[in-house]
């Protein structure tokens, strides 16, 4: 089985986020890390590949910040990597899907896995659009996989409210992977050192047949930081009184109980 896993460098959730006057992120403050959902996808791919001597390729479209994530994927056990060297700010979700599809379409992959969404922009679009661009089947929010049988696989999807749905998907297919499907392994020190010797191909947009970046059809107009919410409400009185009031608020106002 040949599996590709899409990885994205996202803004480090611990990094300080500041906006400049035009509503753009101040880039000098940013640090990047690999999208956590993608690590679940890498882990799932490696487990599937381990059970049938398969081959896992990790791929990322982005600047040099994308390379660290690819190295982590290689260190976890992927066989090779593709870095599509481009500025992700030039691309909308369909543009990212188009460049990934161009890099993957000759690879003969049975499965392409991607995190269900990115930690930063959270669009949940690239996986689905990539399936469309490749002409593959698509299923989302996958929380369980099974051994493939006759060019198809049964997978479990997570539904709203926590129920699961079992679906059968024909290969080739794109699955978007939900968190919690597995526990991503730590890349071992040996794996990290071995990853240095694995093939990491760098492809520019021109190599993939693009004349410049595919035009954005969804444009970002800027970010805003929402005004701080109302201050905490302080409950006055003794323990019994405030506890009763807290229960009333949780039950009647917040509908949390």
């Amino acid at each position: 089985m040949r599996i590709a896993v899409c990885m994205k460098a996202v803004v480090d959730s611990q990094a300080r986020i500041e906006l400049d006057g035009d509503g753009n992120l101040r880039q000098d403050q940013l640090r990047f890390e690999v999208n956590e959902y993608d690590l679940y996808a890498v882990e799932e791919a490696i487990r599937l590949a381990e059970s049938d001597e398969g081959h896992v390729t990790v791929i990322s479209a982005g600047t040099a910040d994308a390379v660290q994530g690819l190295r982590k994927g290689l260190a976890m056990g992927a066989a090779d990597a593709i870095h599509v060297d481009c500025d992700p700010d030039d691309l909308d979700a369909s543009g990212v899907a188009a460049v990934l599809a161009a890099a993957l379409h000759d690879g003969g992959y049975d499965l392409v896995l991607a995190g269900v969404e990115s930690d930063d922009l959270g669009g949940s679009q690239v996986g689905v659009l990539l399936a469309e661009a490749l002409g593959y089947a698509s299923t989302t929010l996958v929380v369980g996989t099974n051994e493939p049988v006759d060019g198809a696989m049964q997978v479990r999807r997570e539904l709203e409210g926590g129920e699961h749905a079992n679906v059968q998907v024909q290969f080739p297919a794109v699955l978007t992977i939900q968190s919690g499907i597995n526990e991503p392994r730590y890349p071992s020190l040996k794996g990290i050192m071995a990853a240095k010797r694995k093939d990491l191909a760098v492809k520019g947009l021109a190599d993939l047949g693009f004349d410049g970046a595919p035009a954005r059809r969804v444009e970002s107009l800027g970010l805003t930081i929402p005004p701080p919410r109302e201050l905490a409400r302080m409950l006055e009185g003794g323990a019994e009184e405030t506890a009763a009031e807290l229960v009333r608020i949780l039950r009647e106002e917040e509908k949390a109980l």
Binding site: Q68, R71, K72, A75, Y186, I192, K196
Partner: peptide
């Protein structure tokens, strides 16, 4: 290096 950073981050996370 990339490898050193990845090892640092891995052991830190561990």
């Amino acid at each position: 290096s990339d490898e050193q950073r990845l090892i640092r981050d891995t052991v830190r996370q561990f």
